[in-house]
Amino acid sequence: MIKIRGLTKRYGDLEALRGIDLDVAPGEFLVVLGPSGAGKSTLLRCINRLCTPTQGEIHVDGERVEAGGAGLRRVRRKVAMIFQHYNVVPRLSVRKNVLTGRLGTMPAPLSWFQIFPGRDVDIAMECLRRVELEGKAEQRTDTLSGGQKQRVGIARALAQQPRVILADEPVASLDPKTSRTVLTYLKQASQELGISVVCNLHQIDYAREFGERIVGVSGGRIVFEGGPDGLTADVLRRIYPGLEDRGEPAPRAWQPTRPHNLSVEEA
């Protein structure tokens, strides 16, 4: 679904990404794990061309991602993004926020006046049902909790009917219970709808719990690629160098995570 070869991104003298090679399979839930500043967000932004690579090639669903033109618009219709700070429109209703995920498929005059065909409304409501927010469809989005706003963001991404979802630290602003709820919805979407999900995280426990495959990034390079059981203490030191030098405890080796009970009332 995603094929990346030799991806490099420089900002002046700073090399944010250094020769990244990566493949993501259809329907795979891939976690990109690493500290702040490792290059995780730059990687995601290069995939949908929000950020222009310095070197390298990216293909999504067999189509090369290039700047401008109809080709880029086609790719972006296939790639939805979920942001750390929700990026919802506070004054709009929950339903209208989700419907913005349909704008890329609509004629311009309809999108200007927010006139959505009945089929798009049905799609939006189905996406809200997936994240258990259909009862809040007409509520203003600024009245929701942080976890509920992020669930609106997931529903909006699903309404786009994408082949790929890029999630840039989607739980960084949420408490642990709500974080697991949000990540569970993303994992379910990947499994049930066959959507490839690339999810940036810096929380080791969540990467172990939800990632089918984990890519560890440090200093703009991939330093680990494998399953959760491969996240040994030595590997984690490569991903998070210098922890012990600063007096931080060494990362724990992987332990199986007990199943969690999903409750969404407060999330």
Rank of each mutant, 00 (worst) to 15 (best):
E57S: 08
R73L: 14
D23I: 07
A38S: 14
H85A: 05
A67W: 09
G39M: 05
A80F: 10
N48Q: 11
G12T: 12
A25W: 03
L30N: 11
R91P: 02
I47H: 06
L30H: 11
Q55L: 13
G68V: 08
V98D: 02
L72H: 04
F83E: 00
S41K: 10
K9H: 10
C51K: 02
P90G: 06
F83R: 03
G12M: 15
G71L: 02
A67D: 09
V32G: 10
E15M: 15
Q55W: 05
K9R: 15
L44W: 02
Q55G: 05
V89D: 05
C51G: 07
D13S: 14
G62K: 03
L33H: 11
N97S: 01
A67G: 08
H59N: 03
S36M: 14
Q84F: 00
P35S: 12
R49P: 07
L17M: 12
L99G: 04
V65H: 09
E63C: 08
R18E: 12
N97E: 02
K3C: 09
P90C: 14
R64I: 00
D21P: 15
R73T: 08
Y86T: 00
A25L: 09
G56M: 04
I58A: 05
G69D: 15
E63A: 12
E57V: 06
G34K: 06
A70E: 15
L50W: 01
R77M: 04
N97M: 01
R64N: 03
F83P: 00
K9G: 09
R73W: 06
V75E: 05
G19N: 11
G34R: 13
L44G: 07
C51A: 15
F29L: 08
I47S: 10
G37I: 12
L33P: 01
L50M: 13
H59A: 12
R5P: 00
L30D: 08
L7C: 05
N97F: 03
V32E: 10
L7K: 07
V88G: 01
E28S: 09
G56H: 02
E57W: 04
L50Q: 07
E63N: 14
L14D: 12
I20G: 01
R5V: 00
V88P: 04
